[in-house]
Design a protein around this nucleic acid. Structure first.
Lengths: 195, 195, 195, 195
DNA sequence: CATGAATGAGCCTTCATTCAT
DNA sequence: GATGAATGAAGGCTCATTCAT
């Protein structure tokens, strides 16, 4: 009969919240945002529809939080390959990471790409996209220049396109064999095989 | 007085039909299929809601026809670069074509990509995607092998990814400067500048 | 090139009109008034939708004309058994006629019965129903009294119910065997077998 | 404060559900299924349109449930006259019951009869109709044979038709006087007056 | 904190009816 | 007369959101 401590309350809240976020990510990614209903998420997450609105202001708010928090939860992981000093090793890590990321976080990637394609996409999406360009690109460039890779800027543009192409191809076809084939082609091309 | 000739009816039909298809393509591409209502299409096309159903069986049918007929209308244009005998010239044409295609048919490309990302995408989308892989790839390979380009298969995989990456980047950011930059990087890379 | 004579016009009109009425009766009877569209009738009748409104003011008007003209076209036929002098022979004729009428004019009977059941049924329906009671019943009564049939009034009420029951049972089940069985039971009951 | 108990929810549900079923029966019976809109039912029942779909999957489902549950609610009542050992008493009860049933459950009877007349009537209707024939008829026959009523089979066919005729006449005309007249004629005919 | 009944706007679709030709 | 394109009201249904309990 003793009242549950506020700590325990917080824990329960966190668990429910995460459950909702995870379920929403899965469903948004699989079926699309518009084709996923709040009822469906609630049922799948094992909570009531009303409770959803205790955690999130609206369906749009839920989407925002889903993206924001999923991005955040991958933060450390996401850029770890940047810490690699050797440029070629970094490329290798980036390729391997991207492949892994696509395979394990398919729904998230589908969701992000889909939203990015919409004219009036959420500001968050634009922010995430611009970060990739504005933060990552310069870092790459410096590192590749330092490594004496010729025409580094051009290569980076191409590399960026390749990685995005890799993603959209895999997300569209779910063809893992093709994914690996392209990844290996890249490694060969940049002589990353023996690292 | 005299009854309308069937030719005249046909003409009227063609006009209205085209207006609907064009409007639908634009809106589907801009806002997504699910976020575009029939009312919206009708209003934008300047016709009544009901007329839609005089030409298309359902919203799904409209989507199908939009894609099918847009693809068809680009048919000749679409693969013209394949007729280029010289492999490097072909690459150049392909790049230029892709850039042009992305810029002039933005909505169509957004629509196609979005639909491709959906788990249960329309059969047409799958068909279009598979055609690209199964028909184009072998043709490229032969031509590039003939041209004595080393590691042709690898290059093709990479090229394919680059083109898709180019597309998704442009469709997402609408950044034409970036588009040209990547295109130029590609041309430089494959020494296509002087052709 | 000579203009069609007005007589021929009238003939054509009459043919088209009858075609519409017949088709409408069939469809109204089979699928119900509400479930039959003007388009369906026009297509089935082989004319254009617009032409329909050249012959009938509205769908309701068409219904009215369908009933009115179908009733009319059966008029002579309909009451011919009343002219039979002998009461028992008249009963026999009435039974046989009813059976025949149900089998050959199924749609009409279904339509009429259905409409009769609706609270706000067309005045015509009410008129037809009341005619049956107010005109036929007395005639029967006189004849049966004259024939010395005991308790004639009671018998008439029962007979009326039996005939309507026969109808609704057949129209509901389409079971011809049952129809004949009841008809024969009636004939046996009133000793009409040897006439 | 405290969450609503499931018992209370159940109670609320039952109230709303019944309100819908009752209203639907009334309107379907009065105006016909096709002429009754969900909006109309909702307005009449004092609920919102959407709530309907919280209880019934579709308009068709509602119809099915209306019929099924109305039949069920009359179950005991419905066949009680069969338990009467004496054949003539049974007939008397059946007549009285039918009259009562027609008067108190007019809408239900209208609805059932109307649906039965439709070519593609709901399976439930067919089931109900066939039950009447396949279950009731044999029971009657046995009882009347036991009672030594001559020509029992014929009489039953006639009786069945009479009862159905009684129904359709009353449902069509709403003429209670006529209903009683036919009922009394029947009682006289089978000498049921002194029971 | 939690539930799900209830709402109502908005969606896709049908169809009687009109009208330019 | 004849056609069928065009209209718009209305119908069935879904779903984000609110709220009594």
């Amino acid at each position: 009969m003793s009242p549950i401590s506020s700590v325990e309350f917080e824990k329960k809240r966190a668990v429910s919240r995460k459950k909702i976020i995870d379920t929403a990510l899965m469903l948004f990614g699989s079926n699309g945002f518009a084709n996923t209903s709040i009822s469906q998420i609630a049922k799948e997450a094992g909570i009531s529809k009303g409770l959803m609105y205790n955690y999130f202001e609206s369906k749009d708010d839920l989407l925002e939080k889903v993206i924001l928090e999923t991005v955040e939860s991958m933060q450390g992981f996401y850029l770890e390959f940047l810490e690699e000093a050797d440029a070629r090793k970094m490329l290798l890590k980036m390729i391997d990471f991207t492949v892994e990321f696509l395979k394990t976080e398919k729904e998230f990637n589908v969701l992000l790409t889909s939203l990015g394609l919409q004219k009036e996409s959420h500001p968050i999406i634009k922010k995430i996209a611009s970060e990739k360009i504005n933060q990552l690109m310069p870092l790459f460039l410096t590192k590749m220049n330092d490594a004496g890779i010729p025409d580094a800027e051009n290569e980076i543009y191409i590399m960026g396109a390749v990685m995005d192409g890799l993603a959209v191809q895999y997300l569209t076809t779910e063809d893992e064999v093709h994914l690996m084939r392209v990844a290996n082609a890249l490694k060969k091309r940049y002589n990353l095989g023996n690292l």
